[in-house]
Design a binder for these strands. Structure first.
Length: 937
DNA sequence: GCAAGGTC
């Protein structure tokens, strides 16, 4: 049997199709892994690496005294299986094979992945011949050729990959642990360090520092407004930017009407369509239409897996000759882009565009299947459309522009105007994502004069360099050789998830800055892109057998040892420095009450709030929504009124919740409540605010005397204010309770706001669950709730009220639950029922039920029912159950009617009893008869 | 709990 190993399932499938000629190809699954079988051949796809490197298990404890971060440098490295199903399958198939061909991608990682597969197979079959097929595209030509002339694994090439693995693991793990431990950050807050992520982060931090230290330079622009054929347009002074204001003013003062056209230069410009998409260009283009790098790749991956577009991880910008472009166009004719496709077919350029990069791994990203807006949904459709239109653009003719340069004079001052007009849109007709900036000016004649409608002198300032957008960052990474087409966007995602950076364009957090500052001081090698470049050249030397993997790794370890020498000497300083900067991350600004520092504080549970550094001396605090709404972080925006950083709640997978200035929000939300106090007026309110008393609670906690002096009230007024505040607080608590209740029982619906419903309820005089429960369903209409929902709400409200009454009566929660389950909801109901029935129905002991009934009856002013002894009840029960045909179900019904023994039964009126129990009268009569004979006899 | 690189 011939076993062929491909790098991924999709490649295995296509290789099998080509080699089998699509005849008798059987697709199956073994051990959960897809297989492709024809004749005597089995093709299996890996999932990239199926094993990974790691340290021995004893190194797992970060805080181990023996296995310190530094000890990882020389720790033994072992391989561990990460894809067990695949590993098991290829080992099993390898045992039966008499030939194995490794057909992974033709690059360094592919060779290493091939070697891993080889070693797995060898562990079960030492003798089987192992060949290597090398191809640079999965096309019939390439594949057939590769299998006709197979070679063997290139161990030097694989060793270059292993060197990378080893170095990345050792540097990354040891430095990550060191920095995290020094800063005392564990769990989800570790501080990671790596050959690619750290230089990328350093780039972002550098840019931020550049922006901060940027000193704007003033400059002046001089322009004139004029008009021709009713078209108003502007001409600029030929000098361009003036750096001296006097010069600009002088030039303006020399500018007199009329404007005379002195020269007109017209030319034509060809505008080539963009090159086909490689991964980076795709991410950039997707970024322009609003997708973050990670999101764009996730969607592309999805479209690829479903056959709409080609493999999204590629460095190639040249369509291979084997790509059947006309066939793709024919496929696309059937889509929404049909008319564009036909236009392209009629106007195709002689050869498609291409970029600088040509690699042979995969073709540029292009559409492979037809799709409709409906089947894809909004986001996927937009990405698909982008890929389709880009593909069409690369086949379309150039756009043609008419360029105009007009020179003018106003008195002696030279002015110019640049205009452009799109003559033929060419590719721009099909590619709508790159806006054609037309700048039309009316047609002019040399020597003609124009009116001078206005002369404008603008004072401006030079701007700092912009922050990196995610896609620009990925472009920079590519330029610097950081990461690969498959990993660059993941690195950005990693920096975001570690909270080193935030937003798009990206900004470093203080944590991110602190880590880079520390690394630059003590381990700057890891913060420089050069580390990757050096590693690449060392890998090249290994590939060429000029150096060994061992040699390269040893040199790298030696360098890392030296770095650790420095790091360990300054361990305390580094830790303290990072911790200090991180603490700053939570600081919002000055406390309005005491001048201390307001900080975001997170408690152990899900609580978070803003507190003062002066606590307990200063108790000023602001409540924040719980952590389930997102973790509170500060943003760089500062409130102009309170000089406090704005606050934002961040939660995974959800758009952040911008709280804004927490103090503004705090004041606004509590002002409403303060107005509930009858004697509150604008004057008192503003005096309270001026004294930083913002909430009703704050007010109730104050002494009358203090309040009087603080607000300039008489002691009597102050006392009254406090009493009224206390009453308002009671109302607020009721409302808060009602709000929670409504939230729990009213399902959220689109376009309905809970706060509005609540406002309307309060306005209707419904301030607590009790008054809600006693409202008519129709009366709730004004709140915007449907009648059905109102009924549910009222029923639940009644339930809750009754439960609370039971609670107030002193019935424990466990028993209350049992009454509820037995559908005994109100205190009156309980009192009306025979105790024996209740006991039987709920499973509570008779004594317990009697005790509860006693309390309940007393509470609602009823007569307490007389007691039964357990013995009497028990005797009655055995008596009743001894009657022929009377089972447990009947017993309960009789209990319900107050019949607890044969004596009661004999005395009962059969017809009435039948009515109240639902048992047929004839049956009752039978029971009575037999009861009479039993009990008397 | 750590990196970067494959792939899903």
């Amino acid at each position: 049997m011939h076993l062929i190993i491909a790098e991924k399932n999709i490649a295995a499938h296509r290789i099998a199709q080509i080699l089998s000629g699509e005849k008798n190809l059987r697709m199956g699954k073994e051990g959960g892994v897809p297989t492709y079988i024809f004749e005597d051949t089995v093709v299996v796809g890996l999932k990239g690496h199926v094993v990974d490197v790691d340290f021995l298990p004893e190194y797992a404890d970060w805080r181990s005294k023996e296995y310190t971060p530094r000890s990882l440098i020389d720790a033994p490295i072992v391989k561990k299986v990460t894809e067990k199903k695949i590993v098991d399958l290829i080992r099993k198939l390898g045992k039966k094979a008499d030939l194995v061909t490794i057909a992974t991608d033709y690059d360094t990682e592919g060779e290493l992945i091939g070697k891993e597969a080889c070693e797995i197979i060898r562990s079960g079959n030492k003798r089987v011949p192992m060949l290597r097929a090398r191809f640079s595209a999965i096309t019939p030509q390439e594949i057939l050729h590769a299998f006709q002339q197979p070679s063997v694994l290139d161990l030097a090439l694989a060793a270059a990959g292993e060197a990378r693995q080893e170095i990345d693991l050792v540097w990354g793990a040891s430095l990550t642990r060191f920095i995290s431990l020094a800063a005392r950050r564990g769990g989800t807050n570790i501080l990671s360090v790596g050959r690619v992520q750290s230089p990328t982060l350093a780039m972002i931090v550098d840019r931020e520092k550049e922006i901060e230290s940027f000193i704007p330079e003033p400059y002046w622009n001089l322009r004139c407004v004029t008009e021709k054929d009713r078209i108003v347009f502007e001409v600029e002074h030929a000098h361009g930017r003036f750096t001296q204001e006097e010069e600009a003013i002088a030039a303006r003062n020399r500018t007199y009407a009329p404007l005379v056209v002195t020269e007109i230069k017209e030319s034509e410009k060809l505008d080539r369509p963009p090159a086909p998409f490689d991964t980076t260009a795709f991410i950039v283009a997707a970024g322009r239409i609003g997708f973050g790098a990670g999101k764009a790749m996730q969607i592309a991956e999805d479209l690829y897996m479903n056959g709409y577009i080609s493999y999204p991880r590629t460095d190639n910008t040249l369509y291979p000759k084997t790509l059947d472009i006309s066939a793709i166009l024919r496929t696309l004719r059937k889509t929404e882009f049909g008319s564009d496709v036909r236009w392209v077919e009629e106007h195709r350029r002689s050869s498609p565009t291409h970029g600088k990069k040509e690699s042979t791994d995969h073709p540029p990203i292009h559409p492979t299947g037809q799709a409709s807006r409906q089947e894809l949904g909004e986001d996927r459709w937009r990405v698909y459309e982008l890929v389709v239109r880009r593909f069409l653009a690369t086949l379309s003719p150039d756009a043609r522009w008419k360029m105009m340069k007009v020179c003018l004079r106003a008195s002696e001052e030279p002015y110019i105007a640049n205009g452009s007009r799109l003559l033929e849109p060419g590719w721009r007709k099909v590619y709508l994502f790159s806006e054609a900036q037309e700048d039309p000016i009316p047609s002019l004649l040399e020597g003609s004069t124009l009116p001078l409608k206005d002369v404008i002198l603008d004072a401006k300032e030079t701007q700092p360099p912009p922050r990196y957008s995610q896609s620009r960052l990925i472009q920079r990474m590519e330029e610097l050789g950081l990461g690969t087409k498959s990993t660059r966007h993941e690195v950005v995602g990693k920096l975001l998830s570690r909270r080193y950076i935030q937003g798009n364009p990206v900004r470093p957090t203080l944590v991110g800055r602190a880590v880079i500052d520390a690394l630059e001081d003590y381990a700057d090698t890891i913060t420089k892109p050069e580390m990757t470049q050096t590693l690449d050249s060392h890998m090249q030397q290994i590939k060429e057998k000029k150096r060994t993997r061992k040699d390269v790794a040893e040199e790298s370890r030696y360098m890392l040892q030296e770095i650790f020498q420095e790091l360990e000497e300054h361990r305390e300083d580094i830790g303290e420095e990072i911790r200090e900067k991180i603490a700053e991350e939570h600081a919002l600004g000055t406390c309005p009450v005491c001048g201390g520092t307001l900080r975001i504080r997170q408690m152990k549970g899900s609580g978070q709030f803003i507190g003062c550094s002066g606590y307990p001396r200063c108790t000023f605090n602001i409540n924040l929504p719980g952590m389930q709404w997102g973790k509170a972080v500060r943003t760089e925006t500062i409130c102009p009124d309170h000089s406090l950083h704005h606050v934002r709640l961040i939660r995974k997978g959800v758009r952040p919740w911008e709280i804004g200035c927490a103090l503004c929000t705090h004041i606004a939300s509590h002002t409403e409540s303060l107005r509930l106090i009858p004697m509150m007026n604008e004057s008192i309110l503003s005096r309270l605010h001026a004294r930083h008393v913002y909430t009703v609670t704050d007010l109730t906690g104050m002494g009358g005397e203090r309040l009087a002096t603080l607000l300039g009230l008489t002691p009597i007024e102050a006392e009254r204010l406090i009493v009224e505040a206390q009453e308002a607080l009671v109302l607020l608590r009721k409302r808060s309770d009602l709000r929670k209740f409504v939230r729990n029982h009213l399902p959220p619906r689109r376009g309905r706001k809970q706060t509005e419903i609540m406002t309307r309820m309060y306005a209707a005089g419904i301030n607590d669950v009790r008054s809600l429960a006693h409202t008519e369903p129709a009366a709730l209409k004004v709140t915007g709730i449907s009648e059905k929902e109102a009924e549910v709400l009222l029923a639940e409200g009644k339930k809750l009220c009754n439960d609370r009454i039971f609670r107030d009566i002193g019935i424990p929660a466990a028993s209350r639950k049992k009454y509820m389950e037995a559908n005994i909801q109100a205190p009156e109901e309980l009192c009306n029922l025979p105790p024996v029935y209740v006991s039987h129905r709920t499973g509570l002991s008779l004594d317990t039920v009697m005790r509860h009934m006693e309390k309940t009856c007393t509470f609602i002013g009823r007569k307490v029912p007389s007691k039964f002894s357990n013995a009497v009840v028990e005797r009655g029960r055995t008596g009743l159950l001894s009657l022929p045909g009377l089972g447990d179900g009947m017993l309960e019904r009789l209990y319900y009617a107050g019949i607890i023994g044969c004596e009661d039964l004999v005395k009962a009126d059969p017809r009435k009893l039948a009515e109240s129990t639902g048992i047929p009268e004839s049956k009752i009569r039978e029971f009575i008869l037999s009861a009479a004979s039993h009990c008397t006899g």
